[in-house]
């Protein structure tokens, strides 16, 4: 099973062949599409390519869940969309179509759509892929801010080890048969060859620097 498949199962978009998927106390694997709606109301999802509706403007895209599920007026929706866009660092893009946005802007608009209804859980499928370092840092800060300020549970799938180690409270490494779970510190201390190989130079350098900041410079530091 891949990372995206796992995330899609948490969102109820795919069913497992066996086993159970329990999200916020709801068992998803036997629910019909309609029964999944109340669960999905509490979940925001950021797809890898944004998945914005390309025939609709940024305002219409972000406003869609509000128009569908609330009684907010058009003016209230416009205000709410502007506020959410501002929180992701975008202004005056409401009238643009997705094809007029850069990769980083598209990802942030998709973020805005995912959080506009203030969900309890945010699922992010490869939020850093294809982005330049500046946008990676921006998205990273945004995710940590959402987790810190709104108390959102954020589940991120990523190959970007440095970002994952910086942000995560818990990490899961998916392997061919099973997985390894733990804190970033536990991963750093692991002797498992596959784990150290997967952390790579970036990850090891970050963890060494983190340890140095916590304990002071040590002899033999790789930083």
């Amino acid at each position: 099973m891949g990372k995206s498949t796992l995330l899609r199962m948490i969102g109820g978009l795919q069913r497992p062949d066996s086993g159970a998927v329990v999200v916020a106390g709801h068992s998803l694997e036997k629910k019909t599409e309609k029964e999944l709606w109340p669960v999905r109301m509490g979940i925001g999802m950021l797809f890898q390519n944004g998945a914005l509706l390309d025939s609709m403007t940024v305002l219409e895209n972000i406003g869609s869940p509000l128009r569908e599920h609330t009684r907010m007026s058009s003016d209230e929706i416009r205000e709410r969309v502007a506020a959410v866009l501002s929180s992701v660092g975008l202004d005056n893009v409401e009238s643009l179509l997705p094809r007029h946005l850069s990769g980083g802007m598209l990802r942030r608009v998709a973020f805005a759509r995912a959080i506009v209804r203030e969900p309890d859980i945010l699922l992010c499928d490869e939020p850093f892929s294809g982005l330049d370092p500046l946008n990676v840092t921006r998205i990273e800060e945004l995710l940590m801010q959402l987790n810190r300020d709104l108390g959102l549970t954020v589940v991120v799938t990523s190959h970007h080890m440095a970002s994952s180690l910086r942000m995560a409270d818990q990490m899961i490494l998916l392997r061919n048969h099973g997985c390894t779970a733990g804190t970033p510190e536990a991963f750093a201390a692991s002797d498992d060859e596959q784990v150290t190989e997967f952390l790579g130079e970036d990850g090891r350098a970050y963890l060494a620097r983190l340890r140095e900041l916590q304990n002071g410079p040590t002899t033999g530091s790789r930083v």
Partner: peptide, 17 residues
């Protein structure tokens, strides 16, 4: 094309049919 680019899944995740 909407299906291939996950736009339909995006709607489902917003609880829109």
């Amino acid at each position: 094309a909407m299906k291939a680019t996950e736009q339909l899944d995006g709607l489902r995740m917003m609880a829109i049919d």
